[in-house]
Design a protein around this nucleic acid. Structure first.
Length: 958
RNA sequence: GCGGGUGUGCCGGAGCGGUCAAACGGGACAGGCUUAGGACCUGUUAGCUUAGUGCUUACCUAGGUUCGAAUCCUAGCACCCGCACCA
């Protein structure tokens, strides 16, 4: 087959599309709008790789599809052109980041054009241009007016490599999001923040309504915003002021034995007494010197401040510690510590010898079987013990087998009046087993309660158990009384078999605690040591105790967005500092504050700082000497609203025309990477809500539907990277297979949201398809479609339409393939055109070429999407195909037996239609003569065909 | 620890109650076409078996629901991803 010159075809159509501006759109009240958007890229010097191509192809296919369906499709592209790499490149080459950036953009545009993407290029936005970033500054001023932009001193994340601070969202795993090898340091600086927390609740609750966003992204945002319900409880400190603390577990209030304040708490010094200052300072110094990495596995540490708080529930005085595990800006920066019921507090208390007070006890209530609590019998409340008795020389434990009750237990016993628990444990072991030579005894875990029917005593027993480990010194035994031992047999059980041996849940539980080590009890249980709340279920007690001692509050993990960056290549923050007036906003009429073009990039330092022309200005308020803010904004500020600017990209009077935005927004389909889940995708939601509240927008969320594409990896399943040398470039791919084949290949590799590996073999497969299609068009006869063809075409239109709609492009391509396989050598023009239309969204250049070949003068890109006729779809045809399939198999089987001879095959068309004979003939190859026959008797004198089962085609051989 | 997700043939990957030994592609193998072919066409690709069939074992594992399960439920295992000292 002659090689097709894809490069020529691609160029031809890309030029025509551009020349005739067919993808440029205007608002049109007569058409329904559809806004398809891919996250605009940072124009890096490296250009696009095949992963980008995949990303854009997803959107392009959808945009083309919607356009052909008659929607007025807005499908723009732009560049996130502020950012560090450009600045670093400028420093390296002693040039200006603008030059670097604009070169990179040119390259991007060229590459994207070559992918055949149907962007409306007239709407391109580039955020490094003053006509864009002046509106960043304008929004900042609106936020400033509303108190949503503010400056404060705070501990901030500093990246040494970026030489600037970072937002919380830009710190991943303690590392900088741009430099995975660089640990973020903490610095205390005056910085500008945007008050994202004002919208925390709406950002959180709004997620429930976003049905067309992926679950995982919404989960990540929920987790990031971190809404939690709890109570604020005031603790009196040092006899005077009340400090509030936040807790989700007020049910454990009676168990508070100390308080912990954050080491970063701004009011820490008020708590530290003279006597303790030295200790606290030493502690603070120590934790400052620990690197972020160590903090990850850090043990809980702290120091006593010397102050005390009063527990409002018990009136007890408890010490206040400073600790490294309390976050300063979450909740109140101080926590009530309940070591018995919080694992962190538990570890801290163990380490510093602080008392542990249990206030919740696990309850094991038997509700089934013969031991189930009986309703008609009163409870008998008793104090009881479990004893874990360890063998004097081996790893064995003494257990009881209660044959008549089907219990397998540890040593269980009741505490007599006036007796201590330990004494009872020792006594019970002696009475029930005879062992009496004890080396040591210690308590294990917490009190736990059992509620069951005790058959041997005929009572409902409510037992409060404490557990003791008793180690024997020797096997010395005393005599036992028969009445104590008649119900059970004492056995020594191997340490690793005890867990299987025991069959009572509470026994299993205390054994588990003994084996795995003691820890805080955090599960559901019954309150104890809690005054009048004793006996209450702790879940219920959360509200009961919370209400009594505090007030209900909601807390968020989300922090305000730190937007100051100590770098040049970003939007200047429009503020002026004046000795008299303080921080003064630049008046709107003076916007934009423009980045100078003539600065020298000589060092790592932000060159704005030394640029007197930029810095020196007048105070807008008093006219006196003013100095401009030299920090710039985080680049995520630009991406928080760029999608609005596409609606009205050249407006010089205002940020955008409200009417235009109203007619295009919100984005109907937003495509981009998962990595933006908790950054860009939260920021842009925040901006949308703010702009709505100042009256510019009439909707709540920027994007109706979000789609996260999967990553494209290198051939071996490895991430593409320059260092590995496995980067696949779209240019190379285009040259080898044509970009249309590559587009088809990329989207056929399985779900679009799944990871995929590039493979040359796979791309060849798609190329074969494209070549076969083009070849078919060279030979096809245009005439009439058979009913079968009509069936196939209509069914394919229906299926492909649905598959594209639901973004199952891989399935759509398969349906297209199947359709193509089934096309016959003669076909109606309309059906052939439908096929081209379906193909054209995936393979736009080839689509146009074939469209033209069919004699069309317009563009298939603007043709209307084919509709299908349900009446033409007849599943019978698929059954016939299956029958043909089967018959071919059968014939080939027969051929194996009658090898080498001429074979005549007669096909009885009980299931097959007449035309199937030629299809069968084609597939079984030469040397076999296939005939369709109607008169069975005539061709089948022996009646062989009669043996054929109904529902299958009959064949027989002459 | 919390949260999201995934487990199917040699590989990628459809299927999500019967029409499933399981689409489609890739690979491998066989045959045809041809001077030749890495190009194209046709077929095979769990095992056994038959002249068009039938059977067995199969969709991570173990149970369950059902006349019937790759598909639904329960438990477990494995892997991937995100967040994580958030009180």
């Amino acid at each position: 087959m002659e090689r097709i010159n894809f490069a020529k075809i691609e160029k031809k159509w890309q030029d025509r599309w551009e020349k005739e501006k067919i993808f440029e759109v205007k608002e049109d009240p007569k058409k329904k709008k559809y806004y398809v958007l891919e996250m605009y890229p940072y124009p890096s010097g490296e250009g696009l790789h095949i992963g980008h191509a995949f990303n854009y192809t997803i959107g392009d296919i959808y945009a083309r599809f919607k356009r052909m369906q008659g929607f007025n499709v807005l499908y723009p592209m732009g560049y996130d052109s502020f950012g560090l790499p450009a600045e670093n490149a400028a420093i390296k080459n002693k040039s200006h980041p603008k030059k670097f950036t604009e070169d990179a953009i040119k390259n991007y545009i060229k590459q994207q054009r070559n992918l055949g993407l149907s962007y409306d290029w007239s709407r391109k936005v580039e955020c490094h241009r003053p006509d864009f970033y002046r509106w960043d500054q304008w929004i900042f001023l609106q936020m400033f007016k509303k108190g949503l932009a503010y400056k404060k001193s705070a501990p901030v994340n500093w990246c040494r490599k970026c030489n600037t601070v970072l937002a919380n969202e830009q710190v991943k795993d303690g590392k900088c999001y741009l430099h995975e090898d660089t640990e973020v340091e903490v610095k205390h600086l005056e910085q500008w923040f945007l008050r994202t927390t004002k919208y925390a609740d709406e950002l959180y609750e709004g997620l429930d309504k976003m049905k067309d966003w992926p679950e995982d992204i919404k989960a990540m945002q929920r987790n990031w915003i971190g809404k939690s319900h709890g109570y604020e409880i005031g603790f009196e400190i040092n006899g005077s002021k009340k400090w509030p603390i936040f807790t989700t577990r007020p049910d454990t209030l009676f168990g508070v034995t100390f308080m912990v304040v954050s080491a970063q708490h701004p009011r820490l010094h008020e708590l530290v007494t003279k006597e303790q200052k030295k200790g606290v300072d030493a502690f603070l110094k120590k934790i400052k010197s620990t690197s972020q990495k160590d903090i990850d596995e850090l043990e809980k540490e702290g120091a006593f401040t010397g102050s005390y708080a009063v527990n409002p529930a018990t009136g007890e005085k408890v010490p206040i510690w400073v600790g490294n595990f309390v976050v300063a800006d979450y909740g109140c920066g101080m926590v009530m510590a309940v070591p018995a019921h919080d694992q962190r507090d538990f570890e801290f208390a163990k380490k510093y010898g602080i008392p542990i007070k249990q206030v919740v006890a696990p309850l094991f209530k038997t509700t089934e079987g013969k031991d189930a609590v009986r309703k008609d019998i009163l409870d008998d409340v008793r104090s009881s013990i479990f004893a874990i008795v360890k063998h004097w020389s081996e790893d064995k434990y003494l257990c009881l087998d209660w044959k008549n009750f089907n219990w397998k237990s540890l040593i269980i016993g009741e505490v007599d009046t006036g007796e201590k628990f330990e004494e009872a444990a020792v006594r019970e072991v002696r009475e029930e087993t005879g062992y009496s030579d004890i080396k040591s005894i210690r308590e294990i875990g917490f009190e736990n309660h059992g509620h069951y029917y005790a058959e041997h005593k005929k009572v409902n027993r409510y037992a409060k158990f404490r557990t003791f480990l008793i180690e024997l010194k020797s096997g010395k035994r005393e005599d036992t009384r028969e009445e104590d031992t008649k119900n059970h047999e004492a056995l020594w059980v191997d340490g690793n078999k005890v867990s299987h041996f025991l069959n009572l849940p509470n026994n299993k539980y205390v054994w588990e605690i003994y084996k795995t080590g003691e820890r805080a009890f955090i599960d559901e249980g019954i309150l104890i040591n809690s005054g009048k709340f004793d006996g209450m279920n702790n879940r219920k007690a959360i509200d009961e105790i919370g209400k009594k001692f505090g007030k209900k509050v909601v807390n968020f993990k989300l922090r305000d967005w730190l937007i100051s960056r100590q770098r040049f290549w970003g939007t200047p923050i429009p503020m002026v500092y004046c000795d008299k007036c303080g921080a003064v906003p630049v008046p709107e009429k003076d916007l934009p504050v423009v980045l100078p073009d003539d600065v020298k990039f000589t060092s790592e330092r932000n060159p704005l700082i030394g640029d007197e022309k930029f810095v020196e200005t007048k105070c807008p308020k008093c006219g006196g000497v003013g100095r401009r803010e030299t920090d710039t904004m985080d680049t995520f500020v630009n991406s928080s609203w760029y999608f609005l600017r596409y609606c009205d990209p050249h407006n010089e009077k205002e940020i955008f025309d409200k009417k235009k935005v109203k007619s295009w927004m919100p984005v109907d389909l937003y495509i981009g990477g998962r990595e933006h889940a908790t950054g860009h995708l939260i920021y842009s939601r925040f901006y949308t809500k703010f702009l709505r509240d100042i009256g510019l927008l009439g909707f709540d969320e920027p994007a109706v539907r979000l789609f996260n594409q999967g990553m494209v990896q290198g051939p071996g399943g490895e991430k593409m990277s320059k260092s590995k040398g496995n980067v696949v470039l779209p240019e190379t791919v285009s040259e080898k297979y044509g970009i249309d084949s590559a587009r088809i290949f990329l989207v056929s590799l399985g779900g679009l949201d799944k990871v995929r590996d590039w493979s040359d073999k796979g791309a060849e497969g798609s190329l074969r398809l494209v070549e076969r299609i083009m070849n078919y068009f060279d030979n096809v006869k245009i005439g009439k479609s058979s009913a079968k063809t009509q069936h196939k075409v209509n069914k394919a239109i229906r299926d492909v339409t649905l598959d594209i709609e639901t973004m199952r492009y891989n399935m759509a391509v398969i349906k297209l393939r199947e359709l193509f396989e089934g096309l016959e050598s003669e076909i109606a023009r309309k059906d052939l055109e439908s096929f081209v239309k379906l193909l054209a969204v995936f393979a736009p250049h080839v689509g146009e070429e074939l469209w033209e070949k069919l004699g069309n003068k317009n563009f298939v890109s603007l043709a209307s999407w084919p509709s299908w006729d349900e009446k033409k779809i007849n599943e019978e045809f698929d059954k016939i195909d299956a029958a043909v399939e089967k018959t071919v198999g059968d014939i080939l089987n027969i051929l194996k037996i009658v090898k080498g001879e001429k074979v005549y095959v007669y096909v009885l068309p009980n299931e097959l239609k007449n035309y199937s004979a030629s299809e069968i003939s084609r597939r079984v190859g030469k040397g076999v003569f296939v005939f369709a026959v109607n008169d069975k008797a005539k061709y089948d004198p022996q009646g062989k065909a009669g043996k054929v089962k109904p529902g299958r085609p009959g064949i027989f051989v002459e």
